[in-house]
Design a protein around this nucleic acid. Sequence first.
DNA 1: TTGTAAGCGTTATCAC
DNA 2: GTGATAACGCTTACAA
Lengths: 342, 342
Amino acid sequence: MKPKLTLKQIAKELDVSISTVSKALRDSPEIGEETRKKIKAFAKFYNYKPNNIALSLKNRKTKTIGIIIPEIVHHFFTTVISGVEKVANEMGYNVLVCLSDNSFDKEVLNMEMLANGSTDGFIMSLAKETMQKGDYHHLQEAINQGMPLVLFDRVVDGITCDKVIIDDVIGAKKAVQHLIDVGCKKIGLISTVDYVSVGNLRTRGYQQALEENNIAVEEQHILKIEKMEDSETAIENFLKDKDLDGIFAVNEHFAISAIKAVKECGKNVPEDVSVIGFTDGELSKRFIPSLTTVSQPGSKMGEEAARLLIEKLESKNDEAENYRTIIVETGLVTRNSTKSEK
Amino acid sequence: MKPKLTLKQIAKELDVSISTVSKALRDSPEIGEETRKKIKAFAKFYNYKPNNIALSLKNRKTKTIGIIIPEIVHHFFTTVISGVEKVANEMGYNVLVCLSDNSFDKEVLNMEMLANGSTDGFIMSLAKETMQKGDYHHLQEAINQGMPLVLFDRVVDGITCDKVIIDDVIGAKKAVQHLIDVGCKKIGLISTVDYVSVGNLRTRGYQQALEENNIAVEEQHILKIEKMEDSETAIENFLKDKDLDGIFAVNEHFAISAIKAVKECGKNVPEDVSVIGFTDGELSKRFIPSLTTVSQPGSKMGEEAARLLIEKLESKNDEAENYRTIIVETGLVTRNSTKSEK
DNA sequence: TTGTAAGCGTTATCAC
DNA sequence: GTGATAACGCTTACAA
């Protein structure tokens, strides 16, 4: 087991000074042709690679970006990570992934760990508990310390930083409009509780679409789910006594549960009831019937977030004071859980 | 924007030396009660946190572990990551995630990046291309440099290191035995090409189960798929002219494609054909019919891998020369794509 | 009880 | 052209 080669060792071996080696390897014109060649040959032969940690200390930047997400076993977040990875790698950055498990405390802890030199900046989607508490001091602290922060998906207005979101309202509107277009008259909504911003926004889109089509919004057609675990039965109970012919669910799980519940009521999808979801995952694609959904381009969001962050990291500090919110567009993926357009 | 507090600044502020501050904060008995209190109070007030990079450089360890996987948009790998994260965090480690995209070159590149000080060790599942090439010099190099390596899932015999695998052969055997138990006579196998070790092993389990039940293995009942993209049509074509009553697929995608193909032939699952998959994901759980599968406990594997790695990292170098292979057990999750046991 | 100095691996500045 | 030296932030013998 040979420990890693350092400049010092090369210097000793070749009987020159450390700084000569350093300069030679970085092609400094100060160094004579001959010595340079010799040093480079030696380094290449022994496969010298500069130590990242030392560089980080010296440059006061680590070339790694931290991403903190609520959970990873979730198709959407997974695609975001892969988007971040992609552009990060292209730009010579590494990605440190931390999970908050939707816990406020873990989120704070993770940030503190990473803020002490481990990363140059953050890409985050907030924990559910954090949004519930409304406590964002940790975000503000990071920003105050000069750590750039990019929020995505689950963002919050009070914090001034770059953001990447999707047009939830418009996406939801598209979905509901589609239901209307294929002839649905009584359209239900299955959403989450309001402090989860996306649930809130998608609900708004639902309402707007109805209003624009002069359809009354009826409260009893709306279900707001608190806990993921109970969602299946909640949806069943909700749909049992309703006579809906269209359902907009704010995620694919709810959509699928809705389809199951509809079938259990002896009705068919999409013949009797059209169902449309949000977020395009493997499940939506391969479920039978395959799901019509609003696609949420996670990978694109990750790429945008990474680009935004790296741009900020590499800009001079003075020009850094403009913050942008990038809205990435959703698309409607029409499949088999909705009737075809008339 | 206040830059981070350092020992130096504290020292200057309090008019003591840097080492005094350092010692005081680490509760060295060398330092007088009074000075210590003063320093600690100050540090606490201004929320001093030591710089990780500096510590890494000094201690020659980063307290982060690198995980390199072929892809992240894949339920199994995702659960592994969450397992690794879990125990890593408990032990005070961070996790750097890199994706090889199943490319040999990217895998090598990633390892080189991380090996230069960014991580203390690796947890990896090999890229498909790497297994195909059979070139493992990068792994060997890391080991030679004293970087511990834990391989999981897609492992390779030639490399001496810790490994975490599942009992693929036994798992496959369980699956096929289950098919036999519910009365299947003509059982087909949908697998991957042989250089992917898991495909290979699961094929072996299939053969063994048949042999142990005195059923002849017929080559025309076996399909080996080369490319994920064409799998759907390949499976359709394969099943069209067969008269199987049981199908064992080595992953959930193949299983679902098989179900679809069976249905298109006008047969029913599980009445006419029982189908069983491998790896338990969201898809298996919620597909209709829900899939009977061999569950592959990714999270458990991740935890074991992390434990193994950290153990090695924190042991004295001399006792480090024993390598272990941990075999985590699969389970059979019986759902609706197979007939019920007679 | 406190301070000095060396060292972790680099790079940049300045002197020779 | 080459080499000392300081610095990044921290720890730790060793002096004082």
